[in-house]
Write a protein that binds this DNA or RNA. Sequence first.
DNA 1: ACATAATATGTAATCGATTACACAATCATT
DNA 2: AATGATTGTGTAATCGATTACATATTATGT
Lengths: 326, 326
Amino acid sequence: MSSIKEVAHLAGVSTATVSRMMANKSYVSDDTRARVQAAIDELNYQPNRVAQRLREQQSRILGLIVSDIQNPFFSELARSVEKFAQGRGYSVFICNTDEDGAQEQRYLDLMQQEKVAGLIISPTRQVAKRLERLAKSNLPIVTIDRQVDSSFDAVLIDNEDAALRLTERVIASGYQRIAGIFGHLSFTAEERLAGFRKALEAHGMQPHSMLRTPAFENEGYSAMESLLCASGPPDAVVCSSALLATGAYQAVKAAGLELPEAFGFACFDDPAWARCVSPRVTVIRQPTKLIGESAAELLFKRVENGQRSASLIRLQGELVERESLR
Amino acid sequence: MSSIKEVAHLAGVSTATVSRMMANKSYVSDDTRARVQAAIDELNYQPNRVAQRLREQQSRILGLIVSDIQNPFFSELARSVEKFAQGRGYSVFICNTDEDGAQEQRYLDLMQQEKVAGLIISPTRQVAKRLERLAKSNLPIVTIDRQVDSSFDAVLIDNEDAALRLTERVIASGYQRIAGIFGHLSFTAEERLAGFRKALEAHGMQPHSMLRTPAFENEGYSAMESLLCASGPPDAVVCSSALLATGAYQAVKAAGLELPEAFGFACFDDPAWARCVSPRVTVIRQPTKLIGESAAELLFKRVENGQRSASLIRLQGELVERESLR
DNA sequence: ACATAATATGTAATCGATTACACAATCATT
DNA sequence: AATGATTGTGTAATCGATTACATATTATGT
């Protein structure tokens, strides 16, 4: 890797001139410009970004810290953030924390130290403690999927309302003993639980049960299995995430229950399988692309103006009615 | 963000002493050590990694460039690489290219300029042209899922063999007019196509058709749809990727064909829906975690010894027989 | 023709760390 | 007590860029 010095030497100019020529702004004569360009081509020179960052104290890189890269919601989101950022000439570094607070902290530190221009993050609950430190650093941050504090920009759907509408749809089908399976770590799950409960209360019903488990496929399976094996099993279930639902769905199938007659099934997100199985599954679909774009846009606004006050963008989840309910 | 200078000043020592103290290696008296530590705590000092990298010309960061972050294969892979790297004290920056050669090139340059310690990449076909440049730079590189050149370390499954076994399984069920739908960009798809063809030839059969399309769900749908609408439609299909298969499967359903009697279905990867639908779908499952770990391990070996000759790890895909075939 | 502005380039400081080298103090050895 | 080894610390160069400032040259306006 050749440096600016070598280019300058080969072109017979100073490094300042090379730098100016590349920045393309101030006065450089056509003659010099050509000689420098020739040297650059000759040496296949690319400026050292690390040195640039040290000097400029900033980069055209965004960080994206997601809690679960395997969740289709987050991977689609990553793609849309990436697309948007690219249009603005930025690159995106994606990091995965698996809902692990320590890991998340490490990546937060890393991003800060790497001087990324801004950060989009789906924060775990644990992060809340270090809020002050984060807020003090001037790193622009937008949270997605979860809102941690009104001092941060945030983009998320109205989870409580979405859960409420989804649950009402289940109630409207006439199911009587409705169970809920929710993640146990995230704010998101909490809000969805609240909506679930509210919908039932509004109809004078009791939840059959409300389980909170780690958000993995096998946890969803065992949670559903245990519900179905107990005496007085539920006749419908609402799941708070795609991964949980994937497991739960298989447990329902394994128990030999026919949808939608014998059992009602509804969940959040719109995983591919919800469209492939028959009857297809009723879901709340998140406007994932829009969430990613809004988050990126908000982030750029803050990058440009660190002082603007935090805004919260609440989007609506879309109820996609399919045949998994009566 | 406070710098080493401020720490040094507060502790009444030189920056060299602070640096030595942090590196924890050479002689620093207990007394000084304590004073410096106090200053560090006081100022909440964290070394600037950008400056460190500029000086040391290397970092403890790995790059992972994937061609499609939405593909469950890659997201699971990302997770396993991440886990492995973390155990060695490394962080991972994931980048997504969407099979776009230009985007890939940008990220390759970026990674080089960012001085990552090493790179794991699922290269698009287009990258082949810039091989020399890559090979010249001393950046350790491991390719996954695809092999570009024997001069690079690579980890992948034996795609041809896997496709051959999968196709043989379809043939064994007695289907007569077997179609194949393959991605049109990747090496991987090519190898799978070769295996598909070989299996049929070995049984003296002709492929009903071999479509090559962009690897997206909707492309899979329209490809399958057009096959089914034509006169003399196939009675079974093999898909080369999960995303294509997701679309193709829905097209089969939409056409009202009953699996496995009226139609046979088989594909690569083991997406969640292949387990959720009934009858469940026969697939080739890749040892994704193992691929990620092997790639990371290989990469670390090369990071430690840049001179070792390239090795190729070929793993086996696992044929998971389910009820989607007679 | 002269003052002023615009253009073109170089010098050197700077970003924040690491480390070779120099030097001083302490310790051990004979 | 003299010598050499060990320990502890500071000075300053270095990594590779950017840019404020100085300076020289050329163009412009009156």
